[in-house]
């Protein structure tokens, strides 16, 4: 077994007593996908994988063609388009991150950790900015652009509404 890549996953290394690392698991999963196996079992020390797919004879079930009701009858859309509406004071092309749900806004992953971001931080697309909790569902909100955090518009622990602005980001092009 190849182990040289373990240092790529320092946080996982100590927990992964099994003699297999995340990369190997990922490769294994890809291989299984490619071979389109319906039954597969592998067991090594500390790790086991079990696949038992139903053969693909049945007509595929209804695909998840969910039409978001909120998108149909709600004029507030969290899509980047809404950010183009005129601002009271002309800001230099600020991009707004809005809340996709109603919930409670948290700036840190837990009460003892530092905030995900501060004003002035450079953020990358895909970087987590905050958590919005609703029904004990922890929703991490990512930045959808590269940029600099200009404002944090909600206080930690406060409730937020659907579509409410959370952060303004100055895009870096």
């Amino acid at each position: 077994m190849k182990t040289s890549k373990r240092e790529d996953y320092p946080s996982l290394e100590k927990e992964m007593k099994p003699k297999i690392d995340l990369e190997e698991i990922a490769r294994l999963l890809k291989l299984i996908e490619e071979k389109n196996l319906t039954i597969f079992e592998l067991e090594i020390e500390g790790f086991k994988i079990k696949i038992s797919k139903e053969p693909k004879i049945k007509a595929p079930g209804p695909l998840n063609t969910w039409v978001p009701q909120s998108a149909l009858n709600n004029t507030v859309s969290p899509s980047p388009v809404m950010e183009e509406k005129p601002q009271p004071e002309p800001q230099e092309n600020l991009h707004y991150i809005t809340s996709p749900i109603v919930g409670t806004f948290y700036r840190a992953p837990d009460p003892t950790s530092p905030p995900f971001v501060e004003v002035g931080d450079v953020v990358k697309k895909g970087q987590t900015l905050c958590i919005i909790e609703a029904m004990k569902l922890m929703n991490e909100i990512e930045s959808d652009i590269d940029g600099i955090i200009r404002e944090i518009l909600v206080e930690n622990g406060k409730p937020v509404e659907y579509g409410q602005r959370l952060f303004s980001i100055q895009p870096i092009s």
Partner: peptide, 26 residues
Amino acid sequence: MRIGEKILYFSTLSSTNDMARQLALQ
């Protein structure tokens, strides 16, 4: 894929959610 068709068993993890998240990100 239906849920439960593919199961990865570990003896020890820091948290199953963290491992699932790592895999999801990959």
